[in-house]
Design a protein around this nucleic acid. Structure first.
Length: 248
DNA sequence: TACCCGTTGCGTCAAATAGC
DNA sequence: GCTATTTGACGCAACGGGTA
């Protein structure tokens, strides 16, 4: 695996591993799933977006191995097993409803709503830069939310949409009825493509931001749980000492 | 100093999902 | 059913740290 591929592999599986952990926690079962999931994830690198169960993973792994050896990929079969994972926002919000103290990822709000009075805008300046395709992007502005995680003091961030819906140079497309020549049609297609690329560019940025926030949230939750775990262990030791007096 | 390696972020495509 | 949105995957560039 290339270094780039390995990095992506790790990133890709982070959420999947976390989801399995969350699921197992919600089931009330304590699983030592790290080794299992690691091996499972290694085998589920099929490029599909999924949260398969371990049993499914095993099936997939078998399928993949046999498929590789035979050179046949039964994509339909795999798609029956694999389904797309819910979005980061959804996962985090579900997590927050189950676990108090886990901040929700804020929904994107229209500009006119403005900044809530008790939210100080973070010093992330709005900047416009030109992309490789010659288009202009406007950096989003982040503002830390006051609803920090109750347990981890981790700030959440609200995303604010750029002040302009369309960047400079992007002209709204004319109605199809007003187009005449093939050249105009081509221009229209180009405009549509550029608009689509621009939207997707922004969406990708937003998606990455949510992903980072999601990872941060998980990390803070890990820290909190580690502290809780440590405290419980200490408490257990104390109780042990009390209940079993020394015999010397 | 040049080179290598790992990390990070970006733009884009494609596919899945959400929403109407 | 169609369109918009979301996100995994890929390739690329930039950057920093380590090393010969």
């Amino acid at each position: 695996m290339s270094k780039c591929g390995r990095k992506k592999y790790i990133k890709t599986n982070l959420r999947q591993m976390t989801m399995e952990t969350i699921e197992s926690q919600q089931d009330g079962s304590v699983t030592d799933s790290v080794a299992e999931s690691e091996s499972a994830h290694t085998q589920t690198q099929t490029g599909q977006n999924s949260v398969p169960t371990l049993a499914q993973v095993a099936t997939i792994a078998e399928t993949d191995e046999s498929a590789e050896s035979e050179g046949v990929i039964d994509s339909h079969k795999r798609r029956e097993i694999l389904s797309r994972r819910p979005s980061y926002r959804k996962i985090l919000n579900e997590l927050s409803s189950d676990v108090p103290g886990v901040p929700k990822i804020e929904e994107e709000k229209p500009e006119e709503e403005g900044t809530p009075p008790n939210i100080a805008t973070m010093a992330v300046p709005t900047s416009i830069y030109q992309t490789s395709t010659g288009q202009y992007n406007e950096e989003t502005e982040l503002a830390p939310s006051h609803m920090a995680a109750a347990t981890g003091d981790m700030p959440t961030y609200q995303i604010r949409a750029p002040t302009t819906a369309l960047p400079q140079g992007v002209v709204m497309a004319a109605s199809p009825g007003s187009l005449h020549s093939p050249q105009q049609l081509a221009e229209e297609a180009t405009r549509k493509r550029e608009l689509r690329l621009m939207k997707n560019r922004e969406a990708a940025k937003e998606c990455r931001r949510r992903k980072k926030e999601y990872v941060k949230c998980l990390e803070s939750r890990v820290a909190v749980l580690e502290v809780q775990n440590k405290k419980l262990i200490e408490e257990l030791e104390t109780l042990k000492d009390i209940c079993s007096p020394k015999t010397d």
